[in-house]
Design a protein around this nucleic acid. Structure first.
Lengths: 126, 126
DNA sequence: GCAATTTTGACAATCGTTTTCGTTTTCTCC
DNA sequence: GGAGAAAACGAAAACGATTGTCAAAATTGC
């Protein structure tokens, strides 16, 4: 429970969207924090390991993080322009994934599902 | 339509699973080809731009490619041990994604869905 | 055949991320 | 409160995948 980890968690909480490690680092530095990039990465790693934040990969392989409110399994509806994300659930998708996996003899099924779109605000602004 | 691009496409065709650029490069070199890594990347880029192959990102950000048989929209059931992939469809998932997007005022909905598991062969082997 | 154009591949550069390694801070126990 | 151990920090170096550069080689059009 270091102070630094709290700082990073809080920086994430202040955003509704997914942020990259580099983004968070830049934000914190510009707020005057003397935090190091290494520490930001370590904090994000720890938070994601403990399941407190969600991670996903952008199209170019960069890892982006988000502090989610729901702690149950969920997916995201992400604005491809501003990055804003909404937490969504899809029981039918969970069922489908399990079924399709079983049908092909696969076990230990997991899945990744993300939905992208342009949010109302960004659509109006463009 | 250079020879090199064909070479890469063919190397991909020979595999049922997703392969990384480095994998393919290693394979081709070990077969005696004098192809360069740069060219492999260029070929994969071109093939994926033209929609001839599918790309996805592994958990650690590496890009992996696969020559898929179906040319309609589909998803993958991937073995997390051997990488073998099966092409699957999920009309209900497509519908769910569109619905959920619309409900939140998002437009231009797209989605990524991948299912992971352990295939029967790998489960038996372990 | 030959100059113009495209493709290729060795190598260097880039970029996000991880390691390394002293230094500093925090914890613990007295 | 203070000494010593342990954990956390951060700067800089290392890394690994990918992309850019540029000259050599292959292909094309004439």
């Amino acid at each position: 429970m270091s102070t630094r980890r709290e700082t990073v968690r809080q920086a994430l909480n202040e955003s509704t969207g997914f942020r990259s490690a580099q983004d968070l680092y830049a934000d914190l530095r510009s707020e005057g924090s003397k935090i190091g990039l290494t520490t930001v990465y370590r904090a994000l790693q720890a938070l994601s390991d403990s399941g407190e934040i969600d991670v996903l990969r952008t199209g170019d392989g960069e890892a982006v993080y988000r502090a989610c409110i729901t702690d149950t399994h969920h997916h995201h509806l992400v604005c491809r322009t501003c990055g804003k994300a909404v937490e969504v659930e899809g029981p039918q998708v969970e069922r489908w994934a399990d079924t399709v996996g079983a049908q092909h003899g696969f076990t230990d099924i997991t899945h990744t599902v993300e939905v992208f779109g342009t949010c109302a605000a960004c659509a109006a602004a463009d």
